[in-house]
Design a protein around this nucleic acid. Structure first.
Lengths: 189, 189, 189, 189
DNA sequence: AATGAATGAGAATTCATTCAT
DNA sequence: TATGAATGAATTCTCATTCAT
């Protein structure tokens, strides 16, 4: 693998395991198998490295959420796919879930960068919501609000479970989760 | 005011504004109007100070959520009160919302402390959910799951809004919010 | 007891137990049952307190060495008394032995103060040595050298034993000790 | 010279001159001609540096005592060599004598480390004493007691002289010293 | 290009001393 | 007179960043 990516991966692992403030460049270098100076060939500052880590995380996150998405399927099926992808990804790759928690409060991650990290996902999801509203399927509330609410619900559920383990995964079936998510956005007459 | 509380308040402000890692004891001292050594009369370590900050935050958070709660009212009315309290509190006191974000990933905040911080709120909310389920009002899914989901939805909504300001508050009415929340937990035949 | 003496005693205990650098004024105050500020009524600085501690130690040391000394007895009997007093005192009051170790390297204890601390003891011992030499009993070497050598031997013996306990006290009888001491100073034809 | 040794040497000088507690890492750095952080590349803590300083001192001390020792010579000649080596070393290298005084009460120097520091010297001296006793030359008292007594006598003599200078060196000839030392351990019929 | 030793600014913490009460 | 809260200089130690090799 490229050294550039090797460094990013090492940083992901260490931040997820130890937290951002307990991850000095020197330990990244050790984990990546290179000298500390080498890291500065690829990233001008630690902040820039963190930004790269964030973008790499959001890429994985995005493609995990969109995996096996059938863009010709119904709105309901597409959202089901995305939500379950999200749910399973954060359950099965806690490293990335922890990483996201850490980075979401890091001063290095600006609002602009966050926007950029989410752009691709939004570009896919927004049209689905739009169509859903056209079909009279979802509430007359801005897409962002509904989408973010559901994302926040799912991710918070799993974060809570990580802190007090083993409650959610054994109890919450895929059907239950979808029932909650749809309840939140579905339009009722 | 007591110096003890003065220090806690100064710390709240600084962490909310600059983040936990950008809040050294020296700056807390300056903000609190005392010498750095003075802080160590009241808190043995910085970690202990952070713990006190967290507990003070959770107290405010809890009493804000339970404000004007009529414990004799219906399940629906009580949850409406709590959710709107939560929503308005986090919108109107962004300092505490930001603080909560920072502290939720702080190594100083152990799982046990988190449990303690949430205890009072849970002790009030859990019985409401229990009654709601007995009345056939809410889904047959553990209270924790539903409660955490809604909390996660609301708080994430507002966090997103803080990063890309002015979208939510002007658009999301109280009624919209409650419609989303109830949709997530309400049982439909 | 006088507060002045109470403070000195507390300091003795704490330095012997924890060492000089691990004995802050605040802990002396706690041990002496008074406020930290009170100590500064009796001693202008910590250094001055240490000096007082040293002098109080040397007083106890001196009177312990001279206990039951029969100034009309023979040179041999008098030195035997002093040496055994010294030996038993340092064995039975390890607090003072430890204290002496700590203070002997403290910057607060000047050469002049050391001289003052030892003055009374020297004033008694020197004439005995002088008489011993007149009687042809001891080597033609300055009193200081002989006296200090024997003192150094005994105190080092006990310090070593304190570090690697239980070797000396069970083995070295009073007769053995005197045989060593006298051997060191006694004149042989 | 190696930076590692440079730091140790600087520390030796400073502790001997100012005492252990008046030797902060910052001053060691200045004396060693490097940044404070550099010291922590070579020693994990200040305590570890002090330990290294102690071991380096004991190495010099040991080789000084054993210099020109003829292991085929008689017991008397060997002990004479060692005692005079010790005496001259501590007189001519007061820096190391002062250093030893400081370190002997340092909390950083554990009993185990002291044992390790003295091991080589003991390994050489003990057999000489054993042989001396077999030859009926020395008292029937444990080697440790006799050896430590003499060591304590010599070192205390020189310490006293350092505090009230110029008394001993001009007066105490090598012969006098040996007469005292042998007197202390020699068996008389 | 890669390294890792060196740097020094900045962090948490301690403690002798002061002073208002 | 006695107190102990308050102070801030000084200490140990960390770590992002640089640069000679």
């Amino acid at each position: 693998m490229e050294k550039h990516q090797l460094i990013i991966d090492a940083t992901c692992d260490l931040i997820a395991e130890n937290g951002l403030q307990a991850t000095p460049i020197s330990s990244v270098a050790k984990e990546a198998g290179c000298g500390a100076g080498t890291i500065y060939r690829y990233f001008e500052t630690k902040e820039e490295l963190i930004e790269a880590v964030y973008l790499s995380l959001m890429e994985r996150f995005t493609s995990a959420c969109l995996e096996n998405l059938d863009r010709t399927a119904s709105v309901r099926e597409q959202l089901n796919t995305i939500w379950l992808n999200l749910y399973h990804y954060m359950r099965e790759v806690p490293r990335d879930a922890l990483l996201l928690d850490q980075l979401s409060v890091a001063p290095a991650i600006s609002a602009a960068l966050q926007e950029r990290g989410k752009r691709d996902l939004k570009a896919t999801i927004d049209p689905i919501f739009t169509r859903g509203r056209q079909e009279g399927l979802i509430k007359d509330i801005p897409d962002d609000v509904l989408g973010v609410f559901v994302y926040g619900g799912i991710s918070t559920l799993l974060r809570t479970d990580r802190n007090a383990p083993c409650v959610v995964p054994t109890v919450v079936t895929d059907d239950m989760l979808l029932s909650i998510c749809w309840g939140a956005i579905e339009k009722r007459d």
